[in-house]
Design a protein around this nucleic acid. Sequence first.
DNA 1: TATTGATCATTGCAGATGCAACGAGTCGAT
DNA 2: ATCGACTCGTTGCATCTGCAATGATCAATA
Lengths: 159, 159
Amino acid sequence: MCRLAEMTFELDRFLPYRLSVAAGRVSRRFARLYETESGLTNPEWRVLAHLAQAGTVSVRDIHARVDMDKSKVSRAAARLEDAGLVRKQDHETDRRLVALSLTEEGAAMMARLGAIAGAFQTELLAELGPSAKAFEDALNRLSAAGNTGDDDHDDDDAA
Amino acid sequence: MCRLAEMTFELDRFLPYRLSVAAGRVSRRFARLYETESGLTNPEWRVLAHLAQAGTVSVRDIHARVDMDKSKVSRAAARLEDAGLVRKQDHETDRRLVALSLTEEGAAMMARLGAIAGAFQTELLAELGPSAKAFEDALNRLSAAGNTGDDDHDDDDAA
DNA sequence: TATTGATCATTGCAGATGCAACGAGTCGAT
DNA sequence: ATCGACTCGTTGCATCTGCAATGATCAATA
C-alpha cells in the first residue's frame, strides 16, 4: 500500500501535471476556435460566457464563481465594454457594485460562440467516449476539494 | 441528437472550463506544498521533476516533452543553476545543446519533493475514489487529441 | 571548402498576471 | 450623526509569459 517510497519520481504519472497538460491543450484547442471568430482573449470569453449564463452580475460574483482574480475580471470587463459587448451600470441598491450585463451585440456574439462551444463540447465527449461520465464526476470532486482554504465566506446563492 | 441549438449557454457544463478550473485549483493546492518546502516556482518544479525522471536532457527535450515554452524552460533552468540544484554542461557531440542534470543538492531536493508529491497523489486518488481510473484514461485521451502536430505549446494552469 | 538551410538556447520586448494598496460605499454600534 | 470595520471595483507595480528575433552550431550539398 505504501508506494510513496519509490526511488524515482515519475512526472508522467503525477495527476496535477497530467491534469494541467490536458487542460492547457484543450484550452488552446478551443481558443483557436473562438479567437479567430471573435478576437476575444480567454478572460474575456469567460466573462462573456458567465454573463450569458447568469444575466446581470457583479465583478465579485464572477470572481468567486469562475475562479478568476478580481483584477482579471475587472480588466476583461473593461475591454469588453470598450468593444461594446458588455454594459456596466450602477447597482440599484448598493452603489459599490457594478451591474454587468450583455449588450445586444454581446448577446449576438455569445450566440455565435455558444454554437461553437457546443460543437466543441460534443467533439470532446466523442473523444472521451465511455469515460465521459466518470470524468465529469472527477472534475467535480477535484474542484470542490480545492475550494477550501481561501479567504471566502460565501453565503450568496450556492449553485 | 442535436443539442447544440440550446438558447442559453451553460458555462458550468462546458468541459474546457471545468477542466481548467479543476487544474488551477489542484495546481495551486500542490504549489502551496512545495513552495513552502523548497521556494521553487512552478516552472522550476517541473524542470526539476523532469530531470529526476529523465536523467540528462536538453532544453528542447523538456520543451517538447513537458509542454512548456522554450524560454520558460531556459529561464527556469537558469534559476535552478543559480540555486545550485541543476548543472549545465556542454553536450558531447553537439555543442548547440545544453546537457541539464541534477546536482547532488538537486537530487536531494527532489527526494524530499518526490515524497511530498507522492503523498499528494494518494490524497487526490482518495478524493477521486472509484472515478480515478476512468479519470486517468480521460486525461490521456484529451492530451493525445490536443497533440496536433504543432511545435510550440504552453499551458495556462501549471502543475 | 564554402554556402545554404536547419536546429538549439538565449534574450528583448510588449502584454498579461497576481498581489497589495487605495478610494468609494455600506452597515452596525454608539 | 459619526465613527470604525468591512466590502467592492480599480489601479500600480513587480514579475511572469509568449512570441519573435539573435547568435551559435550543425548537416547537407555543390
